[in-house]
Design a protein around this nucleic acid. Structure first.
Ligand code: MN
Ligand code: MN
Ligand code: MN
Ligand code: MN
Lengths: 220, 220
DNA sequence: AATAATTTTTAGATTAATCTAAAAATATAT
DNA sequence: ATATATTTTTAGATTAATCTAAAAATTATT
């Protein structure tokens, strides 16, 4: 089924909300995610329900039907593959690619994505450490912990970030923190959750609890 | 100025028609080019005139203003760069890329095109031999003759095609005719304009006048 | 120059996607 | 359990882009 860009974006939003909350997505949550009005969301939900992509009952939230999940997953696959292309091939920085990928993900061509995937050597993760679903929609899973949950002395590698905003990523750039950086917890302050951590066994820096919550570590 | 996909496509259509006919584009010609109704064209022309992109007077044709030429040229640049990417990097065949490039050309990011251009090593021509305007909108010009205008004994290299349809390009594939192929006119039949030509000093084939008109040769 | 043919424009509808404001339903707090 | 607050839906408009059918303007033909 051929969907409009707007329809695709709604499905992706519902997918992301359900994934995070592990329950049905509310009208307001979708509106917030897409920076649109609740009224617009209701309109669109009717249309998506009509097309059998979501389960929708007035005043209850929505969940994706199988067809909807498939569409959302493919869209995420396309988004993340394009992000890899932009970073690996065009040498964009990880804080510059999201906007462009938001556009590229809507290009319609199965063949294009197959070839792009091959060209990039079938990457499993995008530049932010998010898993790229394969052509069948399967995500690679990986054990990871927010740095904020780690204790003094524990060590691991940065494998992902939760916050994808340009501001956060640029801040990490300024700290010289990137995917692959080895992080060891030197100390953590119970009072405010801030931490001092060692980077690649070189320098020690201080970070706030908020930052620590947004750094995903694979422990060694 | 940020334009919609539809607006961009109209500007490109007007550019192509004016380029070929070397005069103003008529409502009907634009409608035909875009497979839409004349009424829709009139609607859009009013909008584009309002935005100072075209010169439009009722019942006269339209011409592009400077801003319109700039937009159309940039769009063509993007289209052709993406076609190069698809063929050179993703290994698509030249008959498969136009549709996808029609979508990709509307992705909005100056930075993306700059980087894509560099990644592709600043190509001057696309996979169909069409010139790629540079960032300033300048086209490389090249002397070329339709094969149909050449005479017995003349020789040259295939540098472009006039017809960009999948059917024509696939037919050329089947003849093993591609950009770079050396073509020598063995004989031409005045009666119907058909020709027998030698390819790369190997085999001789027969082609019709129509085919010969669509092959652009740089004579040696 | 009058008539016919063609082209172009206008008029009026339609569809997707959006909005604001008001009404209705649901959830929360007293 | 009633009142209040929040969420969600409906009602009614708007805008871009399209369409068909009819009217108007232009061009071609007798
Ligand atoms: Mn992204
Ligand atoms: Mn990402
Ligand atoms: Mn093309
Ligand atoms: Mn081309």
């Amino acid at each position: 089924m051929k969907l409009s860009t707007a329809e695709e974006n709604y499905l992706k939003a519902i997918f992301k909300i359900s994934e995070k909350a592990k329950k049905s997505a509310s009208t307001n949550a979708i509106a917030k995610q897409l920076s649109t009005s609740a009224a617009s969301v209701t309109d669109m939900l009717k249309r998506l329900a009509e097309k059998e992509l979501i389960n929708y009952e007035k005043y209850k939230g929505v969940t994706l039907k199988v067809a909807g999940i498939k569409q959302a997953t493919q869209l995420i696959r396309k988004h993340r593959l394009w992000e890899v292309f932009l970073v690996k091939k065009l040498r964009f920085s990880w804080d510059q690619v999201h906007e462009i990928a938001e556009q590229l993900e809507h290009i319609e061509s199965e063949e294009l994505i197959m070839r792009l995937d091959a060209f990039l050597d079938y990457p499993k993760f995008d530049p932010h450490g998010d898993p790229i679903p394969n052509a069948d929609g399967k995500f690679t899973i990986r054990s990871q912990t927010p740095l904020s949950d780690m204790h003094k002395g524990q060590e691991g590698m940065l494998v992902g970030v939760k916050d994808h905003t340009t501001e956060f990523l640029k801040y990490l750039n300024s700290l010289n923190v990137k995917l692959g950086t080895m992080i060891t917890v030197i100390d953590s302050v119970p009072y405010d959750g801030s931490m001092s951590v060692n980077l690649d066994n070189k320098n020690v820096i201080m970070i706030t609890a908020t930052v620590a919550q947004n750094l995903l570590i694979r422990k060694v």
